[in-house]
Nucleic acid binder design. Structure first.
Length: 1030
RNA sequence: GGGCCUGUAGCUCAGGCGGUUAGAGCGCAGUCCUGAUAAGACUGAGGUCGUUGGUUCGAGUCCAUCCAGGCCCA
């Protein structure tokens, strides 16, 4: 006997039962422990930061990771999926800063780095429990008992080893760059972090400033005051100006105009941008940018007069440049290729201490370097506006220039500007030293290796990711912060000598102490020092203060999760490198996808992953991005508690293709549940109910059984084709189309196979046809359960256990330990699939024809005429006529040539209206795409009686149902009504008794204990009643 | 400003190489069917397939332009 399956199912309860079963049976562990020789399939878990509760977008990534892993397991692989936690980084620090009420680095240091980092460490695991519960609940199988954790010493040590390799190869270097800098956090931000904080329509001063020329075209000093007109949105950088840049090939104009005081002046600016001039002017000369190059001008603020040190880029012997102190500086016009002719004046103010392009230009032309702003964004020196925060200094600088007649024009410019995503402070571009990995050295390999990665969707490879790689710049890996992997570089505080350490043992040797038990984090690692080994030097080696970008942490997980090379050296060859599969959302293109790719190209010159699904964003029901700020984040819990995990998973898989953004709402999940899972469940419930009544058991199916009945052959053809298609889709990392195809099959199975086969299950005799029906439906259900197991692991497990495991103690304990179904091509028969599709279509049209003519299906009709489009189809029609006649409740299918005639009549009656139903010649005819189905609208009294008999049987059935009788209960039926009822009850006695399991039809008032109902039936008042026979 | 993606019914989505009258589900209105079904069937309303051009005998599909939205980057 099968377990009784109620059609009322509570999926969340079912989930809990299955989870319990998996736990008892240790199914997940066994899915890899019990197949030591199976080929490996590596899934890398992109580590989440557990410093917040998981949201629905985390569920999305996790179920996509899971579905492929489960599929590969069923295909016979041993799937390694080690969990991981990302535990370092600014987000963690920010949270603790807020909790402690700290607002600057100074306050953190006063509070104490040791205690601060201790709080960071604790906070990271605060939400781990939530994550574990969610992960379990959605059926994501990942090893959470032995995860990799980026804060562990072993993990950090692998990072040190990697940096040491790069150091030895000259790929790790320190450089001064213009980097986005947050003056509140006093730290550079990575490009990834900058991206989080762009804000549109930020107003900034649009400032046109004049720089007075000390030399003019022709060489001598000008006779009238002459200026270069430059534009900036950051007046606070003007004290740092040491050059002006023009575009060599562009046209520039010298114009004559009057200044505010009414005097005549000359100005140079780009011809293309003359429109920025305010009043009347005359163009006196046109020149190329190249002719302006080399001309000198007076700085707006001569640094030597305002107490700001002056340095200058000097060429070294090795072709590099260094900054050296100088007493004075000259300022001149240089050429640069980045000068825009779209806005400004075509002459760009250059301050090497700030922008990165400016810095580059400074190096190239050996410009002076003036830095009048400190890292907190405060103006230094003795400028009139010294001591102010840069943005507050802006108006004062403008006023000062105005008073000196050097401000040509000012307005407001709205543009997109980056703010610190943590604290909303506007970022400053600030030239300072950072550590870099020279990824540009392997740029060609980055691009080349990328071509070997299978991206889903494919366009990411050459599009977003390829574009990013082709524009690769060196990776800034240092952060002037506290909670992160410390950079293992020590420097002598006297002579500046440097050393990079590649492991704890190496460090122990260097300092002469056993550091095995040292916490490798700050501040402890900062206490490790040793005397400078250089003979002439009395200094000490101290660690540089920076920690690493946490993207480096996650990018090194392929090696660090195994503590390579200190342990597990065999990962080089045993298939654990590279990953077969990773999956994250598209925002990881420049995050984890890149850091994995960059590090494996640098370290192994190989790809880090073979296949990657890049998920689109998950949007709310109105199509907006989910964010804490908008408060539209959907909590997975409420969805899981109402609809269960499979419904949520199924929805996420099938709603749209992985790369597309997807809208999410409770309603859509519920729709999925009803349409797919509930439909399947009801087929399953139907099957088990009747199988139990008939005492059918799987062992009754002969080993060499083949389907004979048309319906069976058809549905098994569909099933085997489904297996082929679904297997292909999953093999191709496409759960979306796999799920959609399964859903289609479930719909067909329920609404045609079972619908048309019901009588075969009901009938009392146990013949070969009935066994065939059971064997067929059994096979469909068990196969579908396995097919959908990777997508909907809970319901498929439940079905598997009841349908298969229960009867076969030798079967694997879980559907997830079974083999994925393999199609039997010999059962795939295109002809029968086409024929049945025709039957479904004709039936649909027949229903339309009946409906239009008011002929309800319960009323039998004499005949139907069908016109098909091709002779092949006429053949098929013959084949499936029985299905059609039964479905439409019609006696005969006429195929005596009448169809052509009727079709012509119907067409002319329909006129221009292509698809329609028309009444012609006693028929009601439906037309559609060249087909016609015409039903005979004539109802003889004999047919009418038969219809009434069915109507009465139907009413009796409803009474049975209302009285909650078992399907197999026998009854006595009472009836009272006019002569028509009496006649039909007598004339169709056998039919009605058989349909309703009545032992007697009594024309008398019902017994007291009978369930009774009086109603109008086709205009007649009829009383019907049923009583169960014990 | 640059790159990538997306625009098909009120909503969510299908529409292999261009080819009869562009489809499904949900929702709405109505009718019907049902002893598996919280389901299902039928009818109806709802589409200038984002715009404008082009290629073609023929374009939702191919090309170009523009518009709108999204993501990423400046």
């Amino acid at each position: 006997m099968f377990d009784v399956v109620s059609s009322r199912v509570n999926f969340p309860d079912l989930d809990a039962e299955v989870l319990e079963y998996w736990k008892e049976q240790e199914v997940f562990r066994r899915s890899y422990d019990e197949r030591p020789d199976a080929p490996l399939f590596m899934m890398y878990e992109g580590p989440p930061t557990a410093n917040g509760s998981p949201g629905i977008h985390h569920v999305l990534a996790r179920v996509f990771k899971d579905v492929i892993s489960r599929y590969r397991t069923m295909k016979g692989c041993r799937v390694i999926r080690k969990g991981g936690w990302d535990t370092h980084g600014l987000p963690v620090e920010l949270q603790i800063e807020q909790e402690l009420g700290l607002s600057s680095k100074r306050e953190i240091e006063e509070f104490g780095i040791a205690e601060f980092n201790k709080r960071c460490r604790e906070s990271v695991f605060r939400y781990v429990k939530d994550w574990e519960v969610m992960t379990d609940r959605i059926g994501y199988w990942v090893d959470m008992e032995d995860p990799y954790v980026t804060l562990e010493n072993n993990y950090i040590e692998t990072g040190w080893w990697i940096l040491k390799q790069l150091w030895d190869r000259g790929l790790l270097y320190q450089d001064r760059r213009g980097a986005p800098h947050c003056p509140r956090c006093v730290s550079s931000l990575s490009s990834h972090e900058v991206a989080l904080g762009y804000r549109e329509n930020t107003p900034d001063p649009s400032t046109f400033v004049t720089f007075e020329a000390t030399e003019w075209l022709g060489g001598s000093a000008p006779d009238v005051p002459s200026y270069f007109l430059a534009w900036t949105t950051t007046p606070w950088t003007l004290p740092g100006n040491t050059a002006l840049a023009v575009s060599e090939d562009a046209d520039y104009s010298i114009v004559e105009t009057t200044n505010n005081a009414g005097g005549t002046i000359r100005m140079a600016l780009a011809t293309a941008l003359l429109e920025v001039l305010q009043g009347d002017y005359t163009v006196t000369q046109e020149v190329k940018g190249s002719e302006l190059v080399g001309l000198s001008y007076r700085p707006l603020y001569d640094a030597s007069k305002y107490g700001t040190p002056i340095r200058q880029f000097i060429a070294n012997d090795d072709g590099q440049t260094s900054l050296e102190d100088v007493d004075a500086y000259s300022t001149k016009v240089v050429s640069a290729d980045f000068v825009s002719m779209d806005d400004g004046s075509g002459i760009v103010h250059i301050a090497p201490a700030f922008g990165d392009e400016d810095l580059g230009l400074g190096r190239e032309h050996h410009l002076a370097f003036v830095q009048p702003v400190d890292l907190q964004g405060v103006i230094t020196g003795n400028y009139p506006f010294a001591g102010k925060f840069v943005k507050d200094a802006d108006p004062e600088i403008l006023a000062d220039l105005e008073s000196r007649g050097l401000l040509y024009h000012q307005g407001v410019y709205r543009h997109t500007y980056p703010f610190c995503w943590r604290c909303d402070t506007p970022l400053l571009y600030y030239a300072k030293t950072s550590w870099y990995i020279r990824t540009t050295a392997v740029k060609d390999r980055l691009v080349g290796n990328n071509s070997r990665i299978n991206w889903y969707p494919e366009h990411i490879r050459e599009g977003r990711f390829g574009e990013w790689l082709r524009n690769n710049v060196d990776w800034a890996i240092s952060r002037e912060r506290y909670w992160g992997t410390p950079i293992p570089i020590w420097q002598c505080d006297e002579c500046g000598g440097m050393d990079c350490l590649g492991g704890v043992e190496e460090l122990s040797q260097r300092c002469g102490k056993n550091l095995e038990d040292l916490d490798l984090h700050r501040p402890y690692v900062d206490d490790v020092t040793w005397p400078c080994p250089s003979n002439a030097c009395n200094g000490a080696f101290r660690r540089i203060p920076e920690v690493m970008d946490c993207w480096f942490d996650s990018g090194m997980m392929p090696l660090a999760q195994w503590h390579y090379p200190f342990e597990n050296r065999d990962i080089e060859t045993d298939g654990r490198l590279p990953a077969d599969y990773i999956c994250e959302a598209v925002d990881q293109t420049r995050g984890w996808f890149y850091s994995l790719h960059a590090l494996s190209t640098l370290m192994q010159d190989d790809i880090a992953y073979r296949n990657v699904i890049c998920l689109g964003l998950i949007l709310d029901g109105r199509g907006r991005k989910m964010s804490k700020r908008l408060g539209n984040i959907v909590e997975p819990d409420s969805i899981l508690d109402t609809h269960g995990a499979d419904a949520l998973r199924w929805y996420l898989f099938t709603a749209s293709h992985p790369g597309e953004p997807r809208r999410f709402s409770d309603r859509l999940v519920q729709q999925t549940l009803r349409q797919v899972l509930l439909t399947l469940w009801n087929v399953y419930s139907f099957f088990t109910n009747y199988a139990n009544i008939d005492e059918f058991e799987p062992s009754q199916i002969p080993a060499d059984w083949r389907p004979e009945a048309e319906l069976d052959r058809w549905v098994l053809a569909e099933l085997n084709q489904l297996v082929q298609v679904v297997d292909g889709h999953l093999d191709n990392y496409n759960p979306t189309d796999a799920g959609r195809r399964i859903a289609e099959f479930i719909d067909t199975l329920s609404n045609w196979y079972v619908r048309r086969s019901r009588r075969r299950f009901w009938k009392s005799e146990a013949d070969a046809d009935k066994l065939g029906a059971y064997a067929t439906l059994y096979r469909c259900l068990t196969t579908v359960a396995r097919l959908m197991a990777p997508l909907a692991p809970f319901v498929s497990e439940q079905m598997y256990r009841n349908l298969e495991l229960r009867f076969n103690p030798d079967a694997p304990d879980s559907v997830h330990l079974t083999d994925y179904p393999v199609a039997d091509p010999s059962l795939i028969d295109d002809a029968i699939m086409d024929a049945t599709r025709l039957a479904i279509r004709v039936s649909s049209m027949g229903r339309a024809a009946r409906s239009k003519a008011g002929l309800k299906v319960r009323q039998p009709l004499a005949s139907v005429v069908v016109r098909t489009r091709t002779p092949d189809e006429a053949q098929y029609l013959d084949w499936v006529s029985e299905q059609i006649l039964e479905e439409l409740n019609i006696k005969t299918l006429r195929a005596d040539g009448i169809e052509q005639d009727l079709y012509a009549q119907a067409q002319s009656a329909a006129g221009d209206d292509g698809d329609s139903v028309v009444a012609i010649d006693g028929y009601s005819a439906a037309l559609e795409a060249g087909y016609m189905v015409a039903v005979d609208a004539n109802i003889t009294s004999e047919l009418a009686d038969e219809g009434l008999a069915r109507e009465l049987a139907h009413r009796i059935q409803n009474l049975r149902k209302g009285a909650r009788f078992e399907i197999t209960d026998h009854i006595v039926t009472y009836y009272q009504g006019p002569g028509d009822v009496e006649r039909v009850m007598t004339g169709h006695r056998d039919y009605i008794m058989q349909e309703t399991l009545s032992e007697a039809l009594l024309s008398e008032p019902p017994a007291e204990d009978a369930r009774s109902e009086t109603a109008k039936v086709e205009g007649m008042e009829v009383t019907l009643a049923v009583r169960r026979v014990e």
